[in-house]
Every structure is written in structure tokens, then in C-alpha cells.
Design a protein around this nucleic acid. Sequence first.
RNA 1: GCGCCUGUAGCUCAGCAGGAUAGAGCGCAGCCCUGCGAAGGCUGAGGUCGCGGGUUCAAAUCCCGCCAGGCGUACCA
Length: 551
Amino acid sequence: MKRKLDLCLQDAVAAAQEKGELISVALPEIVIEHPQDAAHGDFACGLPLKLARPMKLSPLDIAQRISKCISLPAEIDRLSVAAPGFINFTVRDGWLWEQVETILSGGEAYGNLSLGKGVRVQVEFVSANPTGPLHVGHGRGAVLGSALANVLAAAGYEVEKEYYLNDTGSQIDNFGQSLYARYQQCRGREARMPEGGYLGDYMVALAKDISREYGDKFLTMPEEEALADIGRIGLEKMLGNIKEDLELLGIEFDVWFSEKTLYQKGQYDEVMAMLRNKGCVVEKENATWLETSALGEDKDNVLVRSDGSPTYFASDIAYHYDKFYGRKFHHVIDIWGADHQGHISRMKTVAGALGIDPDQLKVITYQLVTLRRGREIVRLSKRSGDIVTLRELLEEVGRDACRFTFLSRSADSQMDFDVELAKKKSADNPVYYVQYAHARIASILRLAEQRNIDYSQGEVSLLSSEPELTLIRRLVLLPETVESAAIALQPHYLTYYAQDLATVFHSFYKQCRVVSGDRALTRARLKLVRATQVVLAKTLHLMGMNTPEEM
RNA sequence: GCGCCUGUAGCUCAGCAGGAUAGAGCGCAGCCCUGCGAAGGCUGAGGUCGCGGGUUCAAAUCCCGCCAGGCGUACCA
């Protein structure tokens, strides 16, 4: 619709120029927006304000001249010119009524777009080291990533969700050593935790688990062998734990990508050779460096440590090489915590050096999460040991409230997660406000069913009162909400849309009796209510939430 | 020091590819259930959009400089 108005305005200006009403100047980009005041119509355009200077005419004058030459699309009922120089458009009621039918026939597919044209996009998120349980911050990334994947899929992209599993490297060794030490302690043997080892209580619990399951088995074998076995078993258990957490959040990944395979299958060697050939690699101070400073970075970065082991940076280069060259994704979206922010610039730089357009790699960072219980603030630091796990939060707050809360802030914004508020099953909580609207509709539809009301032939043109038309106007905003969320990579738009839609529905409900003695109007309103349910359900599903029939 | 993010109502936050009187939820002061779910609706109070410059017909939005907070600045990931 916006696109149609855009074209129609371009034509109108061209026509006016041909007639000599307006002089010929370069047109700025035409922006069609929704006026905040409903009295100004459905769409508005401030083009005349922008043309005033180059055309040396008053904006109102220009607006008049454009509107005289305009031929309105069929969907538009009327146009008005308003000070200081806006052209406002109002859609036909008939168009709105058609939309109700469109929504009903589209069902869950309503709101889907072809914006992405089937382009392959990978969304990689969470990717937490399997050396400990997921914490609250990972939860934010998880919800963000999965909702974004849903939005992009709805927008017409072919989306793959991926978890990058760091299953090799120094942290994994450290994990194995820590676990081995705890295991020995469990079996009553003296053992010291490694330097910088994993001190969390969960490691003790994990060791007890293994101790119970395997007894003294690992005490009797050579240390090296025991270390390897315990490390492997511990990792599997941790990973199982992480998968359970994600399942509780309603998240499934298409691919679990193992870092280890980058070394086994050659991507690491290939990309290192590529960088060497380009002359970006130097040996100095006993290590192998990538000369990122020559590519515009602040400094060089180590690829291979002096002990011969590759850095995280090096394996991430191989990983991204595989994403673009191995698996040929057109776009890759990485979702990282703000603490990885320093990594973005050099990754993009390397991508560029490898011949990848840096714009094909989009990194979304989300700011840290602060937990609050009423006034009490709990900072989520790894150091202090009082990490709140995602599991604990999920058990306390519940999946939907958790998802909604994480989604209700832009990723750029530091987040205060108020556990007290998220837990409340009352009006204070926007989660239930939205779901309540869905349940309320379900209840109305149940009543209609009980009374054997068949509304399939409902006459939507009876929906002519202000609350009804206002509601339809909100329903039709879903496609463009999906579009802007997909373009801006900001899934939090959905939560605001959902709340707004719920508000408008509740208001409609108060003013318009649905199941009444007027049988024709009842059928028409049932159609509207059902359409609202479809849109609400779609929005909730995009957010990864449930659509309760009753609460 | 340098880089990224943030600063909007008492609190938590939207809005920021410039546009018409700056929005929401909570909290606060009130009103509305003898008809489909009151987990609801309605009214009201509450703002120098961190501060100072600049660009523009028009700035919360763009540019510059300050101030404040978070994160990063490793041969950690």
C-alpha cells in the first residue's frame, strides 16, 4: 500500500510538471507514514514540505497542485491537504472489509511476505561454551535469535538456525581438568583444581553424577585416558543440560556445528593458507599473527599462540569461512552478548580480506541483563558466583513471560528483568494482557459454537462502527510490522504491536457486543473477532509464545 | 586514553532512514460488572526527550563537543 502511494505520488508530480503546474526538480525519497492522529487519515506524506524550497512555492500550494493531478489507487477513499503541507490519505471502508476476508482465508500465513525472496540466511545464536549451564544473559540471546529467525522466515527468507559448539580448545581442556579434579575429590582422593578452573557448584554436582555412575573406574586408568574420558562424558552431560534449557524456552536448532570439525575437515587449514597467500600473516614474538592493523584495525591479532594452539579468533575465521564459502549463505547473522563486541570489527575486517562483502555479515549484540526482584538488584557476573541460571529463571517465571520480557526491549538497551513483574499473573504483566485477549476471543468463539452460529457467510460490510474499523486498521498492520522487524532486525517490534492490538481489541470488546440478538451483525462481528484471533496468534507464534484458549 | 551501546514521565522502556499536540506499561488520583472472561474498559495528574552548539521550513531523531552509566580494549571466549 505504501509502495502504491509512493508510485502514485511520483506520477502525480510528473503529471503536474508536464502541465507546467510544478517546475522540474529532483525528487527526494518519498516517505509514506502513518499519522499519529487518526483524524489525519491512514497514510500521510510530507513530500510538499520537502519540495517547497527547490520549487520556490509554499508547501500548501504544492500539496494542492499535486493533489489536483493525482489519480488515487482503488483502495483509497479520499485525500486531504493539511497544514503545514501534508497530503493525507484515508482508505475505503470496503478495502478494510476485504482485509478481514483476506486474513480469514490466509490464516496462519497472513503476514508472510516475499521480501526475502528465498535468500538463504543463517542465524547463529546462543553458542555458549558447553562448560557450564546457560545463564540469564544467554536466555536473552536465545529468545532474540529464535524470534528473529521466525520473523525472517515469515518475511520470505530461507532461514537456518545454528548453534556453534565450542567443543575444543583451552576452555574445554580446563573443563575436563576441573571435572577430573572434582571427580577425584568425590572418590576421596586428594586433587587440586587447575589454575583458573571452573569453580561453580554445578561442577561438583556433575562430578558426583559421574562418580555415582562409574564408581572408581577413572581412578584405575592412566590419568591421560581418564582425563579424556571424563572430559567427553562431562561435555555430553553439559550439552544435554543446555539442550533441555533451550527446549524449555521452545527453541530448536537446525544445526549444531562442532568447532572441532573445522580442524578435522580442513576448513581451518584452507583459510589459513588463504590468508598466508594474501600476505596478511606474520610470525613474530614466537606466535602467528594476522596483520589486521594493515587492514585498518587498531592492532594485530594472534592466530596461533606460541604453544601452537589456535586462538578463538582463528577458529572463528575458519568458521565464518565455512559459512560463506562452504555452505554459501547469502547473509549470516551472529547474535552475541555485548561482551563480545570488540570482536565484531576484526571479524568484519577479515571477512573483507577473504573477499566477503562485510555487509553480508551482520552482528547483533545485545546489552547485558540485570535481574531485579522488586528493589533488589542482582548483577549477573561470572566472578561473584551468584550466577542465576536460565533454568532457575524459567522455573520461576515460566516460558512465555520469559520470552515476552526478553523480547520487549531493543537489543541495544541494557535490560532490567524484573522477576517479580514477570511472575505476576495479573494485569500488571503485559504478557498475560496479550494472551488474555486471545483467550477471550476463544471464549467468544466457543459461545458461538455452543449456539450453533455459523458465521461463514457473515457480511463484513456491516462492520462500520468506529471501534470495528479501528480494530481492522490494527489488524492490517501485521505485514508491515513483520517487514520492519525483518529489515531492522529488531524483533521487539512484535511485542509492541501485540500490546497495541490487544488494547484495541479489548476496547472494541467493551463497546461492541459480539454475540447478540442481531443475527447478521453477530455473524459479521464473529468474523472480525476470528480474524483478530488469527493475527494475534500469528504474532504470538512469531514471538515463540503460546496461544491459550483459556487462562 | 581509544572503540561500541545507553541517557525520553516517579520506575521500566518504545519512538530515533527528521515531520502535524512526544507514547506505552507499572505506580499514583478517580470512575465503570443484575448481557459474550474485570487477567478488562474509561478519565486525570505527571516531560527543559542528559547538557551545549550546529544543519534544516521542521530535530527526541542528523552532525560536533561535553557530562554520566554499561561493555570492550588478552598469546580468554
